[in-house]
Amino acid sequence: MRASLDRLRDRFAEKVLLAYSTEQGDDFAVVDPAALREVARFCKEEPELDLRMFVSMCVVDRLLLPEGGPRFELVYQLRQGREPWKKLHLKVRLTEERPQVDSVQPIWKGADWWERYAWDFYGIRFTGHPDLRRILMYEEFEGHPLRKDYPLRGRQPLVEGRGSEELIRGPGAAPPKK
């Protein structure tokens, strides 16, 4: 996959901030947040890369890591849609003050729920996402529980009771209105 990293560097020059492979064989390309959507589209549509499979996405809160630097690191796992099924990890680093980046949902449909997950648990905002709601926590929940400064045993007050017509509603957004 070395070749793919070179391909990205050739095409995007300084927009690829860093490209490296680990000893165990994972390839990472750190991309300028402003260029994420452009790079993502290239990864998917360039026949040589053909990274059509959106495997998953996660966030690392680097608050307690000694290296310093921007607080949040988004890691996108991508894979080719054909043999030899090579994979690539795209990374974007976001600061604590502005945890916001373009959504890649218009490029890969699979990014929809993963971005909602990143919003729910880390408070990352994705511009251009069609429906950025919490996914696992309930809407009244305050804060983003996987951030390193959220306490392990953090307790939140019980949610206020709801009227009888809301009883079947449960947590989450209201059902689609007629």
Binding site: F54, S56, D61, L64, L65, V75, D112, W113, W114
Partner: peptide
């Protein structure tokens, strides 16, 4: 890993998650 005895971050990519979203 940050070199300690605990995972600094452990992300699970469960196969069912993207499938359910579709």
């Amino acid at each position: 890993s940050d070199g300690s005895g605990r995972p600094y971050k452990l992300h699970v990519r469960a196969p069912g998650f993207p499938i359910l979203s579709a």
